[in-house]
């Protein structure tokens, strides 16, 4: 293999990738796909939970702020969201560790399992893992929540100033119904595309958060493989990150079409 030209080697590599053979990791002495799969399963759960939290919180806060037409509250929350967005994840993570693990001693400081993890029942094991994931989830979700909030709020403000909303209000519809049926579906489209990108990034590995809390995720796997020059594993990780990025964006596009049927028409034409 190695004495063949680079181009031929590259095509051999490509055909191997299609067959699902990414080579053998130098460090783990295992097929790359197995190693990546092991770490990816954690990252998958972690990022799905995180994106769920981000959308849930940002959405409910935006709804709350839109319902009360309080200018001071609006301004305060939008400044707060900018502030939260400005906190780097490692600063937030270290601060949270200091506050909750060192001073208050509520949450564990790092890792995914307690020392006596093996003695728990099935439910106990999962609860234990979830208990370890609370601080990382807050760390990972804070900045994203602030960013989503900004997008939702901007979208809603834009829709709320449209004349058809005025018309609906004048027709005497309840404000709740207007928000639910007319404002949100129209305001949500930028959010979905941003959420797609965010999900793709998260699935590629939340590097800093994983490093702070020493969690077994894709981000740390990638960086460890870079530091140990484990080239097959680097290629495997980067390939996975690229694929999930494309898949997440694809998913976002499909959801967007669900909200706005005109997009599909444009696509078909």
């Amino acid at each position: 293999m190695l004495n063949e030209p680079v181009v031929e080697q590259y095509f051999a590599f490509l055909s191997n990738v299609v067959k699902g053979d990414l080579g053998i990791s130098y460090n783990y002495r295992q097929p790359v796909l197995e190693v990546v799969w092991e770490y990816f399963s954690f990252t998958f759960v972690f990022s799905i939970l995180s994106i769920f939290i981000q959308i849930l919180f940002s959405f409910s806060i935006a709804l709350f702020v839109s319902r009360r037409k309080n200018n001071l509250l609006n301004k305060g929350i939008s400044n707060l969201s900018l502030f939260v967005y400005s906190i780097p994840s490692f600063v937030l993570g270290v601060f949270l560790i200091y506050l909750f693990s060192v001073v208050l001693n509520v949450f564990p400081i790092s890792g995914l399992k307690s020392l006596d993890h093996d003695q728990f029942s099935f439910i106990g094991k999962n609860l234990d893992k979830f208990w370890h994931l609370i601080l990382p989830l807050i760390t990972l979700s804070a900045a994203g929540t602030a960013m989503f909030y900004k997008y939702i709020k901007e979208g809603m403000d834009e829709v709320l100033h449209q004349t058809y909303i005025l018309n609906l209000t004048a027709s005497g519809l309840r404000e709740k119904d207007i928000l639910k049926k007319h404002v949100i579906p129209n305001a949500v489209s930028p959010l979905i595309s941003v959420a797609g990108i965010e999900l793709g990034v998260l699935l590629g590995g939340a590097l800093i958060t994983e490093v702070i809390f020493s969690l077994p995720g894709m981000g740390r796997l990638t960086v460890d493989s870079i530091f140990s020059r484990d080239y097959p594993l680097i290629i495997g990780c980067v390939l996975t990150a690229g694929i999930v990025m494309i898949l997440a964006n694809f998913l976002a596009d499909i959801i967007k079409i669900k909200f706005d049927k005109r997009l599909l028409k444009g696509l078909l034409n």
């Binding site: 870079i226 990150a241 990025m245």
Partner: peptide, 13 residues
């Protein structure tokens, strides 16, 4: 299309 931080880490490493 790719988290740039990994590219940066790769180059720096």
């Amino acid at each position: 299309s790719f988290p740039v931080i990994y590219l940066i880490i790769l180059i720096l490493a």
